[in-house]
Each structure stands twice: as structure tokens, then as C-alpha cells.
Design a protein around this nucleic acid. Structure first.
Lengths: 226, 226
DNA sequence: CTTCTACAATAAGGATCTTCATAGAAATTA
DNA sequence: TAATTTCTATGAAGATCCTTATTGTAGAAG
């Protein structure tokens, strides 16, 4: 799960990132309008935390541009002002939620969770593929109603593949998704094999095989039987 | 999908190639102006990554020559300088996008994907021919909504033919599209027969025959029924 | 301090790609 | 139409590259 923090106050943005990383999110920070737009154009984020009062421009314009580009990223507007107008305009422009400074990080986290659930998983907090159930809320996985113990990486991997079902995901993408911030050495992607192997083993031991397919030379694909 | 990397920094160009090969692109590297031009004249690339500041000349001139030759290759300009002027001039000369050093490889990859989608597939990321669906984003093929497993070469071949539907594609063109530049002498084009055969077999086994026609003495043609 | 888990690196095993040999089909020529 | 030539299809084996299994290391937990 990837989050973009658009916030110019260094200290605040850092503590947000720290907290959210603790919640297993991958966080990137943009301290200004332009950086944010560049990142948004190229990457897909699960949620964008957008401070309305940016130093180099109006955050609402950024939101406009974002929506004009048909981006599907979730957006939570952050504002220092308690202005109702901003809130209404932001929501009208397509923001998913709104939070006013100062806020508790736990509240922010809860709102993020809700936005992601609504957008990425269409309101549901569980993904169901026949006997395989992924409980996003509880970060747990069940097969035939019996819980399967996965490590954090394994869970992230499964959720990532499952939410991209029937699409081949490159090892580059997996590596990036699993190991937080940008990796600069993409030479040693072998560690992915272990995670894939362990995940496959745990799933099949619980009676759930062949969901994750290796696509020779291309990556991996989650393919539900349906 | 073929990419030409025009970049004199050895290490950077290598890591770019490694990453992009991981994304299933065929990559070639030119370390100088002259080599690049030679390659561009002979081959068609889906995207050219052009470092503006080449050791033996100005990259913008290379771009000019490229456009003067009516090449349809997509171009992404790479620049160390943050100069807005270069960016504007490059885009005026017909470049499709622009990225500044230093950049993240995943960002480069995302921009390449966007350029190719715009240029080759008119913005869409899914090709639909009746019961046959090609998901470019997910590198997956579906027939009657059921996934069809293709190898990388088979997929590339299908995508190439399908994106040139109703046009006869020579075996030379196919060979060039499927291979890197190591093979300058295309005497052994037999490998194409194998890939065509296997592709046809997999498609017809999934209930989708007669899309790929052999044109005796000329090549192959993808001909949707519609 | 010991034990266990998660992660990284290396070696063995498989899938894919290419080549080669041969058979079949289509066009050309007589 | 038959013979000949040219081109394409098929099958199989070796080479190459990728994946999986195994092993080793570091860090966390007890």
C-alpha cells in the first residue's frame, strides 16, 4: 500500500511517514506542488494525503489536475483552516475525505484505511476467491475458514498479487512493492523467490494450490479458478 | 517491445537495461551519437531514451535528424540539467516526454509505458477482437474471458501482429521485433515458424482459430473476423 | 545466551528458445 | 496435369535462461 504525503511542514510530514510506515504503508513525501504532480503523474498511489495550503500554489488546483487526468488514487484533504468552504469544494472536486489540523495520527490512519477499502476494494474489506479469503481489515488470510499464518511480506505479496488478479506482475514491481522505498540495485531480485516459495507452500499446505503462477521470464500472476 | 537507450554513462545505461529487461523489454544500448543514429536508421524502436548531453554532439540534433527521417519511434528525453529550455525545445522537436536525472527506474518505466500506449495503441491498454482480448497492461490474453497462457515470445508475437491487424508483416520484421540487435544476419528465420506454430496451437485450443493467416511468400497477417 | 524467524545467496532442476532435419503445401514451369 | 521449386509446418534435441530448492546469515524474540 503506497501513500503520498503532500505536505510542506518537514516535521509533520516526517512524523506522518514514520507513523504510517509503522502501519506497514509505503510512504513517499512531496514537499511542494510540482514534485507532487510529477509523482502522481507517474505512480499510482493507494491514497494521497493532500495539504491544501501548499507553498507553491493552491492544493485544490492540484486536486483538479489530478482528477482531470482520470487518476483513481484516493485523496484525503488536509487543511489547517477550519474552513467549511474548502472542505466542500474539496469533496466536490472528488476528494474522498477531509481532515483538519491538528489531527491525531491514529485518526488519519483510520481514515486512510477507510478510503483505501472503498476505492481499491470497492467497499469490501475482504477479498474472496472460492476457499481463499483475504481479510484486509484484519490483515489475515483464511482458507476453508481456517486461518493461515503469513509473515508480513508474504501477506503483502499475496494481497498485491490478488488485487491484480489475472495480470502478470513483474519482479521489479514486486520488489518495489515489498521493499518500501526505491531500491537502486535491481540486480538482486532473488529474494523474491523465497517469499513466493514460502507463500505458495503455506497456501498449498492449507489446501489451496495453483493460485499463484510463475510466468516464465515475465513475473507472477494470481489466477483464481472461478 | 524494443527500447534504445542512448546514454554514455556505462553504469547508468546498464542498470536501465537490467531493469527494463525485467519488465520484458528488449533493450539495446548506444553509448554515443553515431552508434545511436546508425541503429535508429536501421531498426524501429518502440521507445528511444535519449540523453541530451552526449559526448559526441548535441542530443537535440539527433532528435532533429530522427524526426527529419520521419521515424515514428517514441522519444523520451533524459537530461542532467534541470533546464526548462531544453525540455521545451525537446518537446517542440517532437519528443513525447522528458525526465530529469537523477530519476527512479520505476518512474522511467512508467513513462515508457505511457509513451508506448499513446503512440502504439492510441491510449488504450486493452485490445479487443471479438472473443479475443489482449490486456497490454497485464501482459495477459483472454479468450472468452478465460486466460490463455503464452510465453513471452508468443505474447510479443501476438501483440505485434494484432497491433498491425489486417496488414501483412514480413518475417524479417517479426524477427527484428522479437530479437535484440545481436542477430544482424537474419539467415535463420526458422525460429519464427516455431513460435507461430505454438501460438496458433494455443489460440485454437482455446477456441480461437484462423486469426493468424500465413501469406505465402510474404509473411503473416492478423485478421479479426468482425 | 539460546532459539527461532525472516531474509539473502548459491546450486540444482525445468521451461523456453533456437536450431536442425524432414514432411507438407503452394506457386511456378513445362 | 505433372514435375519442380520455393516456402511453410512439424517434431525433436541441445543450449540457454529462469525458477525452485537448499543452504547460510543476520536479527528478533524468548
Amino acid at each position: 500500500m503506497k501513500i503520498l504525503i503532500v505536505e510542506d511542514e518537514i516535521e509533520l510530514s516526517n512524523s506522518m511517514a514514520t507513523y504510517l510506515r509503522g502501519e506497514s504503508y509505503l510512504c513517499e513525501i512531496a514537499h511542494d506542488h510540482r514534485t507532487a504532480l510529477d509523482k502522481i503523474e507517474v505512480f499510482d498511489y493507494d491514497c494521497i494525503l493532500l495539504d491544501i495550503s501548499l507553498p507553491d500554489g493552491n492544493g485544490l488546483n492540484l486536486l483538479r489536475q489530478l482528477k482531470a487526468n482520470n487518476k483513481t488514487d484516493g485523496v484525503i484533504i488536509i487543511s489547517a483552516r477550519n474552513s467549511i468552504d474548502d472542505k466542500i469544494e474539496g469533496l466536490n472536486l472528488g476528494a474522498d475525505d477531509y481532515i483538519s489540523k491538528p489531527f491525531h495520527l491514529s485518526e488519519l490512519s483510520a481514515r486512510i484505511k477507510a478510503v483505501i477499502r472503498r476505492r481499491r476494494f470497492e467497499g469490501t474489506s475482504v477479498l474472496v476467491f472460492n476457499e481463499l479469503v483475504i481479510d484486509i481489515e484484519g490483515k489475515s488470510v483464511f482458507i476453508d475458514d481456517k486461518p493461515v499464518d503469513l509473515t508480513r511480506k508474504e501477506y503483502d505479496l499475496l494481497l498485491y498479487l490478488a488485487s491484480n488478479k489475472n495480470r502478470i506482475i513483474s519482479k521489479n514491481a514486486i520488489a518495489e512493492h515489498l521493499s518500501g522505498d526505491e531500491i537502486m540495485s535491481y540486480d538482486n531480485l532473488d529474494f523474491i523467490y523465497s517469499h513466493i516459495k514460502n507463500l505458495k507452500r503455506k497456501l498449498s499446505m492449507a489446501g489451496c494450490s495453483d493460485y499463484i503462477k510463475s510466468m516464465y521470464g515475465m513475473g507472477y500472476k494470481f489466477e483464481p479458478k472461478s
